[in-house]
Design a protein around this nucleic acid. Structure first.
Lengths: 225, 225
DNA sequence: GCATATTTGTCCGTATGTATA
DNA sequence: CTATACATACGGACAAATATG
């Protein structure tokens, strides 16, 4: 547990409201960016000391993140960064088909505008070859799509889903070939929605999700035993 | 905090795996059955003593249930049994339309059989005028419907959603007039699904959800200020 | 508005049980 | 199989926030 000392830069961020939630925020970010790799065990002792919080508080944070499926709690063995199986990936995409598919049929001008905004970010990032940012913009794009369901709870589910997916993105060796091709597909989707071509938009979305899932599953195959 | 002593009967149930999860299970059940009423504050001191667990452990259980939206955590004020607003109820039904609506289009013989099973329970309970059990069977019925999406995550969302709804059922003064009428509607829905009449089944579901939502919102109106 | 009592938030030390080298 | 490391759970402590009179 040597590299945990890098966490100490985050200590200053603890100070506002509930400590456990702050800790959860920090850890969530660190997991998203891959600082903590999937499968890695998070030691109560080491992280608690690095962040300067007690084990009780840290355990509360762990509980929160376990419930978000970012950590996995194994009884008497500790918490580990979640490792998604190929089955998990399929499940995530099944949910996305349901939620995003429903959103397509409830398109609104404001929603489409928000999607355009995220799309623009993605185009910009792609042009500058910031492929990780392309991935982030893509996530925002689909979050904006899902938001047209106009439901707080569906937004929460979607946010959690995409956070799980970020866990998987780290297995993609080449972020360009994974994230890059989705920019034009997002453009197409927005154009169809703006034109009121609901059915064609739904089909374009299906095809997008099928391809993205297939790519991820394919990248998984070598590692799964 | 006098009636908390009744909780002590639950002490013996603590013995298997993680204590915090056991405690959460007990409290979840107690909330579902209305023993703890919406809005009620759950005292760390009293409940911890009643169940014979430490405050730290109890707080972990509270965290779990807060994340399930059954409890609400107010900083420095404690945890309270969640009180759903009319807006929450609408949101829950918006999610149900999305998830159950998608399930209708993926009907399977096994899934329909599971729905029939829950339906039978409901019919039996209705005949014997056990209206609370009619409500429980109705929940199982729709859980079986949602399960046809064949997604663990959607099942989880659905379970949580229905647990939240149980919170609301307690405001219904007359359980018969609320739960009773849904038996024939469930029968109709199953019949349409079995006949492969997907579109008509989807419309029947929509109409069911609209009516159930309207009834709940109506029951809420007098209490909301 | 104030003083007091209560309750939560957080931490620590420790004992016990469980998994792994 | 033993030893070690670690998670689980407890109980006590105190400061800070909140509720009560």
């Amino acid at each position: 547990m040597e590299h945990v000392t890098a966490l100490e830069h985050d200590r200053e961020r603890l100070g506002r409201s509930s400590t456990a939630e702050k800790v959860a925020d920090i850890l969530r970010e660190r997991i998203a960016e891959g600082f903590f790799a999937p499968g890695e065990r998070l030691s109560e002792e080491a992280i608690g000391r690095a962040l300067g919080v007690s084990r009780n508080t840290l355990r509360e944070a762990f509980r929160l993140l376990s419930h978000e499926r970012l950590l996995e709690h194994k009884l008497n063995r500790g918490v580990f960064v979640r490792v998604l199986s190929a089955g998990d990936v399929s499940d995530v995409y099944r949910v996305r088909r349901v939620i995003e598919g429903a959103a397509v049929r409830r398109a609104t001008p404001e929603g489409i505008a928000a999607m355009r905004e995220a799309l623009r970010e993605g185009e910009q990032a792609a042009e500058e070859k910031r492929w990780r940012d392309v991935g982030t913009a893509n996530i925002r794009f689909h979050q904006a799509l899902a938001r047209m369901n106009d439901s707080q709870r569906l937004d929460d589910v979607m946010r959690q889903l995409l956070a799980e997916l970020r866990l998987v993105f780290h297995v993609m060796i080449d972020p360009r070939s994974f994230h890059g091709p989705f920019v034009p597909r997002n453009q197409e989707l927005v154009a169809l929605l703006a034109a009121g071509e609901t059915d064609r938009a739904a089909r374009a979305l299906e095809s997008y999700l099928d391809d993205a899932e297939a790519l991820l599953i394919e990248a998984y195959r070598p590692r799964e035993n």
